[in-house]
Design a protein around this nucleic acid. Structure first.
Lengths: 284, 284
DNA sequence: CGACCCTTTGATTCTGGTCAAGAATCGTGG
DNA sequence: CCACGATTCTTGACCAGAATCAAAGGGTCG
C-alpha cells in the first residue's frame, strides 16, 4: 500500500478541473456519461493505476455494463444542487452514478442534519430506502453529473433472473455497509487532523479506483459540509487543512482552496497511521 | 484476555452442550431459540408493544420463518466470547441471529479497533463480506445465543428462486445500511451525554421491536466496549451514566450497574432531542 | 462596485480525554 | 462458604483539543 505514490496519469489526456460553482452551467465534457463510460477512456487511465485500484475499476466497469445490458435504464443529467430524492419520499427507484458526485443527507426528528455518505461514479443511490419503502435520506448532487434511473422492481426482477446481476447488487450493498463502517471508525478513533487527512486519502483512493487523477482533488463541498461529514466544525476543518499544508502533507491549488494537491499519498497515509493522531477510545 | 475466543466446534453432527465455563450460568429461558421463536411467546409480549414495534416484530418473525422454510439452515449455539468469524477469513456463510447479542469489531491496518455495530435476534451477520469474499470484521458473541448458519451460495440460490426471500435479504441489508448511518449521525451530532442517552433509547426500542422488555436493559458489555462503540472513553461513559441517573432519567438495577432501568422512555428520548445536547457541526 | 458567502485566523471557553486512586464486582480456589 | 486477586467501574484533579465567538480577508455574482 505504501508505494501508492507514483501512478500519476500523464496530464495529456486529463481535463481541466471544474470550478466549483453553485448553480451555473457546467462543462459536461469531463463528467459526461459517454466520455467517461467509454472503454478507451478507461484504457487511457488504467496503465497508471495500481493493481488493486485497477481491478476495482475493472469490476466497476463490468458491473455498470451488466446493468446497462440487463436493465437498460434511462439516464438523467443533474446539476450541482439538484436533489435526486428526499427522505420520506416513497421509494421505488435506485440510481447508479455514471458521473458526478453526490452527498447523502440524513435528518433526525429534531433538526439535526448529517451528511452520512459521499457517492461517486459507480456507486449506487437509494438502497437505504428498500427496507421500509421510503427513502431514508436526501440525495443531493454536488456537481454536474449523470445517473442511470433504475426502477427497483425491474432491478429485483432482473436479479432473480440473472445471477450475475444479483451478485453485482449484493456486492454494491455489501460495499456500502463496509464504507459506512469505515466512516464510523474514522470518526470514532481519529483526532480531527488525522480524520481530515484520512478523508483526503480516502477521496484520493476513491478517485484512483475510478480511473481519475488521485493527486489533485477538487473538493466539491464547503468547509461546513466537510466538517459536518467528519464530525467537526468548519473552523476546525480549516485549521487542520492549514496545518497539513504547513507540514507539507498537502498543497492548495492555485485555483482556490478547495483544490488540494497531495504530493505524496503514502506520506499522508502514514501520517494517519503512525500519527500523533489517536483518540484513545481503546478497546479492552 | 478472557475471550481466548476460539471457534466453536464446527463438526456438522454434534452440537456442544451448553456449559458456561467462566461465565455465570445464564437463564436460557428468555434467549433460547425455541422459547423465543414460539408464537405464544411473542403473543405474550405483543399486547404491550407499540403498534410500530409490533409490526416490526411481526415482519422479523415472518422473515425468520421464510428463511427456515426456504433455506432450512442448521443452527449453532454460541456462548459469550465465542467468535463466529474473523476479519479476513474467507466469506462463504452468513448468519441469522435467533437469540443472543453480538458485536462486530473492525480493525484498521494500524491497530485501531472499533465496534462498528451491535446485533440482536433477527439481525444478520456477515453481509459486509460479500463484496470482496472476505469477512470485513470480527463477529463476537456477547452472550449465550443461537444462530442459523446459512451458506451464502444457498441463500443466493434461494433468492433467485423465491422473490419473497430476496425481498427479505434486501430489506435486511438496507436496514443495516440505515442503522450504520444512524450510528454515524449519533456520533457526529450529539454531545457525549446525549449520545449515551440515545444509545439507551435505541437499545430499548430495539428490545421492544423484538418483543422483549424495553424498560429494563441488561447491557452485556463493559464500559470500555460501550465507550468504544460510542466514540468516547470509558470514564466518560461512566460519568454520563451517573449523571443520567442523578437526573432520574435512568436507574441502576440492584443486580449491578450493567442493568439499567428506564422509568420513562419518552422523557429520555426527549432529553436527547431537546437536550442541552447539540454538538453544532451544523450544516450551512 | 458592492453584497454575500466562504474561508481563515485569533482569543477564549468548555467538553471530554488523561492520569490516578479507590470501590465494587466477578471468578477462582481453598 | 469465604478469601483473594483480577477486572471493571466510579470519581476526582488536571489538561488538551476542539467548540465557540469574533473579526478580517477573498471570491463570486449580481
Amino acid at each position: 500500500m505504501s508505494s501508492a505514490a507514483n501512478f500519476l496519469p500523464t496530464s495529456a489526456s486529463v481535463k481541466p478541473p471544474i470550478l466549483p460553482s453553485r448553480h451555473t452551467v457546467h462543462d459536461l465534457s469531463i463528467d459526461h456519461f459517454d466520455s467517461e463510460m467509454s472503454a478507451d477512456h478507461s484504457d487511457s487511465h488504467a496503465p497508471y493505476l495500481h493493481l488493486q485500484a485497477r481491478q476495482a475499476h475493472q469490476r466497476m466497469l463490468e458491473a455498470m455494463q451488466v446493468i446497462r445490458d440487463l436493465v437498460k435504464p434511462t439516464a438523467k443529467v443533474v446539476r450541482a444542487g439538484d436533489v435526486l430524492y428526499r427522505a420520506g419520499q416513497p421509494f421505488d427507484t435506485v440510481f447508479l452514478i455514471n458521473a458526478g458526485a453526490f452527498k447523502l443527507v440524513s435528518r433526525s426528528l429534531d433538526g439535526r442534519e448529517q451528511i452520512v455518505s459521499l457517492k461517486f461514479r459507480g456507486d449506487w443511490l437509494g438502497f437505504s430506502g428498500i427496507a421500509n419503502g421510503r427513502h431514508a435520506c436526501d440525495a443531493v448532487a454536488m456537481d454536474t453529473g449523470n445517473v442511470s434511473i433504475i426502477p427497483y422492481d425491474a432491478l429485483a426482477e432482473g436479479c432473480s433472473r440473472h445471477t450475475p446481476l444479483m451478485s453485482v447488487v449484493h456486492s454494491a450493498m455489501s460495499t456500502e455497509i463496509s464504507r459506512e463502517r469505515e466512516s464510523l471508525m474514522s470518526v470514532c478513533t481519529l483526532a480531527s487532523q488525522a480524520r481530515v487527512a484520512e478523508f483526503l486519502c480516502a477521496w484520493a483512493r476513491s478517485m484512483a479506483q475510478r480511473g481519475l487523477r488521485a493527486d489533485e482533488l477538487t473538493l466539491r463541498m464547503t468547509r461546513a459540509d466537510l466538517g459536518n461529514y467528519l464530525g467537526m466544525t468548519l473552523e476546525t476543518v480549516s485549521r487542520c487543512l492549514s496545518r497539513l499544508a504547513r507540514e507539507q502533507l498537502i498543497r492548495f491549488g492555485e485555483r482556490g482552496r478547495r483544490q488540494i494537491t497531495i504530493p505524496d499519498l503514502a506520506r499522508l497515509e502514514n501520517y494517519v497511521i503512525s500519527g500523533t493522531a489517536g483518540k484513545s477510545t481503546h478497546l479492552q
